[in-house]
Design a protein around this nucleic acid. Structure first.
Length: 416
RNA sequence: CGGGGAUUGGCGCAGUUGGCUAGCGCGCGCGGUUUGGGACCGCGAGGUCGCCGGUUCGAGUCCGGCAUCCCCGACCA
């Protein structure tokens, strides 16, 4: 992509009503646009980031047997009535609307009931189980207070996976698999070292649920981390009894602020019974399906990445997440320079490297400032100076060092 | 939902005890000089001052109501 073709541009004056670091940087650099409190549009750069995150999640979900589908945002009232969760006293984040004939509808804040009701049509026999389905879907939640930029929105993108198992044993095996796949995901997006498997409150069916909490000052949760055991306990369930049960010493715990980037839940069979999701087992008797639910907040994850990886100049994307791998800038107006830059741009693309080519006729300082702000992992600069030195200047976003390397070497290095 | 703060061109802000053509910076357009860390000069476009009502000869400025945004708290499978 040539920068001159990109419709967004960076801005110097950030909207004053944004104090969250993630939103400030993302707006300033042209990744997102704020429409209302807690409602953000994702612009070309931002969408590429989301897609990169989604692709990693998708690969991991597929690798454990998940099948992707897409549910709807309009939901019928009846489905939620079965579990008494249409009632706004039980679920206070509903957006509700109605058809022109007066029929009430809900806007999807979750899809548990909807997808489980649908499964009643497909999961009839023990031969149909287990089944694992997931989606990337916008969730609409009437939060009392949106905050922290894209970390707590009224409309946000979530990956939600649902498991349907014959019995507890089959369920637990998958539950553990998801847990492992989540560890891989957070590692791949660059958060492996700061994300902890965390014990949190369970609900009606289990004592605990499990969260994946990333250490982050902008997060809303407080967790207690045992770094040796590589686990954490959410403040909401911390007690002497729980410590004893988990075999954790109070002295080994450190308190941190953290952001919940993922969670996994066991539902048991109660919801199946309410909704009427039964299967026929090998002996011919009716049994309720065992449910599990597994979420990752994709947009929140993006916000956490910005919060964690940024400096005073701008964003610093992890390699796997960046919208482009390379920021290529030409410096000066010399014809040879422009031609060399253009050629390098073409060849990098041929080699399969995603490049943002800053071909604008502006001063170098502005290009460098934008390169830092946008936060791509590598910067290449073609100038009279670099050509005289035998090639192109190479710099990593995370380092202040630059080196001049030949054009061929640059292509080779980046194509790896 | 409780408390606090805010709302003036696209963005950031100033605007005195109410006073006549509402300013500045960034950005934008045109012309020129520049070109390795957000350059400079000149000219120019762009605003019913969040909305509704009131007080007044006169309201961006005072009063009342509403809306929106931000922060703190509460809430948060």
């Amino acid at each position: 992509m040539k920068y001159s073709q990109l419709f967004t541009k960076t801005i110097k004056n950030v909207p004053a009503d944004e104090t969250a670091r993630n939103a400030q940087l993302l707006i300033q650099a042209g990744y997102i646009y704020k429409d209302m409190a807690g409602v953000y549009a994702f612009l070309p750069l931002g969408l590429k980031v989301l897609e990169n995150i989604k692709q990693i999640v998708r690969e991991e979900m597929n690798s454990i047997g998940g099948q992707e589908l897409l549910m709807t945002s309009l939901q019928n009232k009846t489905t939620w009535g079965k579990t008494d969760r249409w009632n706004s006293k039980n679920v206070d984040v509903w957006f509700k609307t109605e058809l022109q004939n007066g029929t009430e509808l809900g806007l999807a804040w979750s899809h548990e009931e909807q997808i489980t009701t649908m499964m009643n049509q497909y999961l009839k026999s023990h031969r149909d189980l287990p089944a694992y389905v997931y989606q990337f879907q916008n969730k609409l939640r009437n939060e009392l207070r949106a905050k922290s930029g894209i970390m707590r929105c009224r409309e946000f993108l979530m990956k939600d996976l649902y498991s349907y198992s014959r019995d507890e044993k089959q369920h637990q095996e998958f539950y553990d698999k998801v847990s492992e796949s989540y560890q891989r995901i957070f590692k791949r997006v660059g958060l492996g070292d700061s994300t902890y498997f965390t014990f949190a409150s369970g609900g009606a069916f289990t004592q605990f649920s499990h969260e994946f909490q990333t250490l982050c000052e902008a997060g809303e949760d407080t967790i207690y981390v045992d770094k040796k055991k590589k686990l954490a306990i959410n403040k909401e369930v911390l007690s002497d009894e729980v410590l004893k049960q988990l075999g954790v010493n109070k002295a080994d715990l450190e308190e941190y602020k953290a952001a919940e980037v993922g969670n996994i839940f066991s539902f048991g069979t109660a919801k199946s019974e309410q909704i009427g999701l039964f299967f026929t087992d090998a002996e011919g008797s009716q049994k309720p399906v065992v449910l599990g639910s597994y979420g990752i907040g994709i947009t929140r994850l993006m916000g956490v990445l910005v919060e964690k990886f940024a400096d005073e100049h701008g964003i610093i994307w992890p390699d796997n997440i960046a919208p482009f791998k390379v920021y290529l800038a030409s410096v000066g107006v010399d014809k040879k320079v422009l031609e060399a830059a253009e050629k390098l741009y073409e060849e990098l693309q041929k080699a399969g490297v995603e490049v943002l080519f800053d071909d604008r006729d502006i001063r170098p300082g502005e290009k460098f400032a934008d390169a830092d702000l946008i936060g791509l992992p590598c910067r290449l600069v073609v100038s009279e100076k670099s050509l005289a030195g035998g090639g192109v200047e190479f710099k990593k976003r995370t380092s202040d060092n630059t080196e001049i390397i030949s054009l061929d070497k640059a292509i080779k290095r980046l194509a790896e």
